[in-house]
Nucleic acid binder design. Structure first.
Length: 950
RNA sequence: GCCUGGGUGGUGGAAUGGUAUACACGAUCGGCUUAAAACCGAUUGUCGCAAGGCAUGCGGGUUCGACUCCCGCCCCAGGCACCA
């Protein structure tokens, strides 16, 4: 035995860190490359807090793939920069009374050191910082391009206002009515704000999602956020104005019993009559005081509102429709007006009931059976029948007669068909007599009609039943005996009102009961139109189409698609951001700042104490600068840009971080975009990604870029969050797990490997350092393996390696790095028994290098290689002839052993082998093989039991 | 309420429809050691001495065979939500 060296991770990591830095191994020349791979991390905000083990996981994942693709022969761009504008630095500055630039400048080098500690391969020659004038000059330029094309607009509008942070918040920064950052209750304020018109891109942003290789949940989040809904506009004319209303249920148009405006609606004062002015005004005042939180929680609260005194003309019936105001109507969705259809919308129903407005049903409900037994069979036609549903009340008590079915889990009312020529009442009386035997009853009410679609198992028919719901009260308990036949099907049960809804299994029957109670009951589903003039008898779907088309013909509306997405509010009344590059003339008209004046630098003499307006407003220098450049009476916009604007295009800047002539180089962008792999947390699933997609599409649409693919990030991977005892790690909570101690004790490689090994990369999980020793032990074993190398080739080791390589290649595509590490452990476990072939080991450590770059590089050099392992190539298969494959033998699905397969074998040959094999034959001894299932080359299942009934 | 994901040992988690619980942690026992740590070895789903049962949230179904596919529920996490 020679002298064994031991695995000294500290020495190894220190050594190679230095070598790589000296050799600038991570720098790439973008222009030269044809075969590029753009691997991007969501760039961080450079806080002074430092990286914790949760941050590491994302950076290690991207580093893994950066190195992997590099070994695959690609030129990998893997840059890193800093999203350095924003509230945290400004808040720190306020607290510590120092300039935010100072904080940022100090934090970045510290941050870079911590990123380097992960061992990740970044090209630091291409770093950027969004707070740097050389960057934000181009952010301002970008804003001006939107302005030039009419896609940046200043509007007076009600905005979310955080009273504590004293700033405007975008809708998406309001969480449950509270400020995303500080948690204060958000209030409303009317301000002039800059918007970017992202809504113009709503359709394509939605459609574009289909083409992306993104996690389904992120696509679904974006879809929900964009919130496409198809419907129609309907125009109602009043004496004073016309009101446009958006609805998704234009089929219910004949059920409109009022129009309801949002309190913020601009035409509210116009429609309010003198008589109602006071009550409307005081109502509006009251709802303004309601916090955003209360307003949003309002779904559970009573729906308040008042009448405005005026009426509008129904476009189809010409009826006078009263106009109300209520704060359950949102000002910025649709047109801020709702047509009230109480019979077919829960909210409208609530509102109508609490203000005694009429409820006019215009849909005959249609119920489609969903149970397995009664589910409509797709291929069969419908047979139409008339029928009845009878609700029968007890002669003295408040109880109702239900049928409990014996062979199926059903609870229903009494039902039956109507024979031709028979009246509904007569049919019902017959059914009641037959099914429960009661003789003396009184028809109290015809409750309503419905349609029911179901499958009738005995008749094997799809049925379309026109049902009439009848309500009877028994006069006394006189009854005849029920036939045995009927008694076998179901038994009658008396139900108290509380028991009825849980008892009934069919939605049609539940509706019948509610209709009897409420007269009319709410029905939000589909069906056939009634009370709708010429549209009666159409299905809701047909009617919606026809009514929308008719409205369009008459010029009072028509089909339209509406989006939940709102325009992007980019103004912030804050210091630490890029100044919006707009200058106002003495009349207050907005002009683009001239290109040669960019960047509009942040003034340095501002007091950045938040006071409800941008602190920049107080800068004397800033005022003077505008006048100097543009003339007396001119002044700059003093709001700054939302930091999401900074980050909406940074991935373009990485290609040419130091170019002072243009924001980006279209030729390079054409070569490198879209980003091949984008890695970051789920927290940016909506805003950052949506804004970036919007900006990128804008740049292409208006000719700034000429890429064919209009999406910037082709593949996205969301790294799961690491929590500590279930809580998100943050310095303020004091629950940060720092990697430093673990790195010192086990090494960077061990921590990297452990973070990958923990579980699927997309899973969030709770931090538990316990297992890191397992990875450390594995690395020690790998190191020890290098001490016992055999120069001779070893075919069985080569075969083991080939299997391993095949499996990890497949896992790579699905980001299953945890099982890749497992596979490596399994391979090492089986190689450890004897000296390992040099060639096998050599190829093996290349596969380890993306996860364990330091150890891999060390072992690579121990093997005698002069160049870095990262200049080598991902290994190939040995292609050794596979060892004889085994065929699994199962007996009644239980594993009893394997047989070696040589060449192609038939089922019979294998069975013969089983029967002649010493161990296997005794296991099937005395059993009769009824039949067998053979999956060629894999398994043979011998069956002794009869299969269950088919 | 709507939309996504999930539910497998004591724990993190494996499993193209084919021996469920790989890999690792922890635990127990043993070795080494004056001792401890480290390291090495064995055992480790559950009931059972064993043979053999029973186990992948619950109930059905398809299949020779289901963690995996289908239907119906329950529970957990995340998102959206008075969006007309």
């Amino acid at each position: 035995m020679g002298s064994m060296r031991s695995y000294d991770h500290q020495a190894i990591e220190k050594k190679w860190r230095q070598v790589w830095e000296d050799q600038k191994i991570d720098e790439v020349d973008l222009a030269k490359v044809a075969n590029g791979f753009y691997c991007l991390d969501m760039f961080p905000y450079p806080s002074g807090e430092g990286l914790h083990v949760g941050h590491w996981r994302g950076y290690i994942l991207s580093d893994y793939f950066a190195r992997y693709y590099r070994l695959q022969g690609k030129t990998v761009l893997h840059p890193m920069g800093f999203d350095s504008f924003g509230l945290p630095a400004e808040n720190a500055a306020i607290k510590k009374k120092a300039h935010p630039k100072k904080f940022t400048d100090e934090a970045i080098p510290v941050f870079i050191d911590q990123l380097k500690a992960t061992g990740a391969m970044y090209d630091w020659s291409k770093t950027i910082s969004t707070a740097d004038p050389s960057y934000y000059r181009w952010t301002q330029w970008l804003f001006l391009q939107f302005f030039k094309h009419g896609l940046a607009e200043k509007r007076h509008s009600w905005v979310n206002w955080c009273p504590k942070d004293k700033t405007v918040l975008a809708n998406e920064q309001v969480i449950n009515g509270c400020c995303e950052r500080c948690g204060s209750k958000v209030t409303k304020k009317k301000l002039a704000q800059w918007y970017l018109k992202i809504t113009d891109f709503a359709t394509e942003l939605l459609d574009g999602l289909e083409t992306l290789d993104w996690p389904e949940n992120v696509k679904s989040l974006q879809k929900n956020w964009i919130g496409r809904s198809e419907g129609a506009n309907v125009v109602f004319h009043s004496d004073q104005i016309s009101l446009k209303v958006f609805t998704t249920r234009v089929d219910t148009l004949f059920g409109v019993t009022a129009l309801v405006l949002a309190p913020e609606h601009p035409d509210l004062t116009t429609v309010t009559t003198a008589e109602y002015k006071n009550s409307v005004l005081s109502y509006v005042e009251k709802s303004k005081e309601k916090s955003e939180l209360d307003r949003q929680r309002g779904a559970d609260l009573a729906k308040t509102g008042v009448f405005t005194g005026s009426y509008a003309l129904h476009p189809l019936t010409s009826k006078q429709i009263p106009i109300w105001v209520a704060d359950y109507v949102l000002p910025d969705y649709g047109s801020g007006v709702v047509m009230l259809v109480p019979a077919h919308d829960q909210r409208d129903y609530d509102f109508a009931r609490s203000h005694s407005l009429p409820v006019v049903p215009v849909i005959e409900p249609e119920f489609i059976e969903t149970s397995e037994l009664g589910k409509v069979r797709e291929k069969l036609p419908f047979t139409e029948r008339n029928g009845i549903v009878a609700i029968v009340k007890h002669w003295t008590e408040d109880k109702y007669l239900g049928l409990k079915w014996k062979n199926v889990p059903w609870g229903t009312w009494i039902t039956g068909g109507i024979e031709t020529g028979q009246s509904a009442e007569a049919a019902a009386r017959t059914e009641i007599l037959e099914e429960v035997g009661y003789k003396n009853l009184r028809l109290v009410k015809k409750v309503g009609t419905l349609i029911s679609k179901f499958y009738h198992p005995p008749k094997q028919q799809n049925r379309l039943l026109h049902g009439q719901v009848l309500y009877f009260e028994l006069e006394n308990d006189e009854r005849i005996p029920i036939s045995k036949l009927e008694a076998a099907i179901h038994e009658p049960i008396w139900l108290s009102p509380d028991e009825i809804l849980p008892f009934l299994t069919a939605s049609a029957h539940r509706w019948a009961w509610q209709e009897l109670q409420d007269q009319p009951a709410l029905y939000e589903g589909h069906g056939t139109l009634i009370n709708s003039g010429m549209y009666d008898g159409l299905t809701t779907v047909e009617a919606a189409k026809k009514i929308a088309a008719d409205l369009e013909r008459r010029g009072s509306g028509g089909p339209i698609v509406n989006y939940r997405l709102r325009d992007w509010l980019v103004s912030r009344q804050r210091y630490w951001g890029a100044p919006i590059p707009i200058v106002y003339d003495p009349d207050g008209t907005a002009h683009a700042v001239r290109d040669e004046h960019l960047p509009i630098l942040l003034p340095t003499d501002a007091e950045f104490m938040p006071g409800g307006e941008s602190p920049i407003k107080l800068s004397k220098e800033f005022q003077q600068r505008a006048e100097k450049l543009y003339g007396k009476g001119w002044h700059f916009e003093t709001d700054t840009l939302d930091t999401f604007v900074d980050s909406s295009w940074y991935y373009l800047r990485f290609l040419t971080p130091n170019n002072n002539d243009q924001a980006f180089d279209p030729a390079l962008v054409a070569k490198w975009l879209p980003v091949d792999l984008y890695i970051g947390g789920i927290e940016h699933a909506i805003l950052h990604l949506l804004y970036s997609r919007f900006v990128y599409r804008f740049l292409i649409k208006y000719g700034y870029l000429n890429n064919d693919n209009p999406e910037p990030f082709q593949q996205l991977f969301n790294i799961g969050m690491i929590t500590l005892h279930g809580a998100k790690m943050s310095k303020s909570k004091g629950n940060i797990v720092s990697p430093n101690e673990l790195v010192e004790h086990y090494g960077t490689d061990a921590l990297r490997g452990y973070e990958l090994f923990l579980g699927p990369m997309e899973n969030s999980l709770d931090w538990n350092p316990r297992g890191i020793n397992g990875v450390h032990r594995f690395l020690i074993r790998v190191f020890q393996l290098s001490q016992e190398i055999d120069d001779k080739p070893d075919p069985s080791q080569e075969a083991l390696f080939d299997g391993y390589l095949d499996r990890i290649d497949a896992m790579m595509k699905d980001f299953r790095l945890n099982t890749i590490i497992s596979e490596a452990m399994i391979l090492v476990n089986s190689l450890s028994k004897e000296p390992v072939s040099k060639e096998v080991f050599s190829r093996f450590i290349v596969t380890l290098s993306p996860a364990f770059p330091f150890l891999a590089e060390e072992l690579w050099s121990i093997l005698g290689n002069k160049e870095s392992i990262f200049k080598s190539k991902w290994p190939k298969f040995f292609g050794a002839t596979p060892t004889t494959k085994k065929i699994k033998i199962l007996l009644d699905q239980r594993f009893i052993g394997e047989i070696d397969r040589s060449g192609e074998m038939s089922e019979e040959e294998i069975i013969k082998l089983v029967q002649t094999s010493p161990e296997l034959s005794q296991k099937i001894d005395g059993k009769t093989i009824l039949r067998s299932i053979y999956k060629p080359g894999e398994l043979l299942n011998l069956i002794t039991r009869g299969s269950h009934n088919r």
